[in-house]
Amino acid sequence: MTLKHSLSLFALLGLMVLASCTNDDTRLDPKQLTTIVRESISQRNAPPRDKDAIIEAASREALSLTSPEDPLASIQFDSVGIAAVLREIEKNGQHTVWAAWGSSDRKSIVTKNGMIAATRGLRKDLMSSEADAVLDLVRNRKEGNVPYTLRYLDGDFVIIEAKYTCTVERGYDKTVALATGPAPALQMFSSCVSANRQFVDLFLVDRSGRILEMRQWVGPVLGFAYMSQLR
């Protein structure tokens, strides 16, 4: 079989999927395919938007339309162009599940005591993590060297672990603008190293140990998440 033949075969396979129709909803609906193609084209052609401005506007709206007791946060993943205002949708022990406010989208971010512990429905999700040692130092505003593990699914559905050693250090005092007013916080840097990657996470922590703002490495595709507590 020549290359021409191989390529023709792939083209025919694609055609075979596209041209199918069926009443069986467990089989692939060709409409899904055209949607995928359309979305990827529109994403490519979309004009760049000022995400900060959008998030600020959405944050203001969310704060004005929700009860003062409802926790709200904002998140941005610059490397994949995701930005949203988040609301709490579930709690499981120390874990909090957040989803986009004003949307029924199931994409979710899971935090454990304020640090991102997992994602669901994003690209190359963070499946789980072991961050208690880092959290303990960060929330107590202490310094030290601790282990940190992030887990992902590879393309063959097998869990792969990225094991890091992190050096947690104190930075400068800062002020974080919350909806309830300015709040004093301390910078806590966590510099993590593995055999083939290194990154620095930054947490702004108040005196009670609450993480008010952070820049946290989530994974090789999602990159850094910028998350702020709004309320």
Binding site: I89, G93, R120, R123, K124, G155
Partner: peptide, 25 residues
């Protein structure tokens, strides 16, 4: 020579579906 490679362990397109519902405690 033209060499086309692929690896079954690296999907051509990462599977994107709706996220799961969280477990309710």
């Amino acid at each position: 020579t033209v060499n086309v490679t692929l690896n079954p362990r690296q999907p051509a397109t990462e599977t994107q579906g709706p996220a799961p519902l969280p477990v309710a405690v």
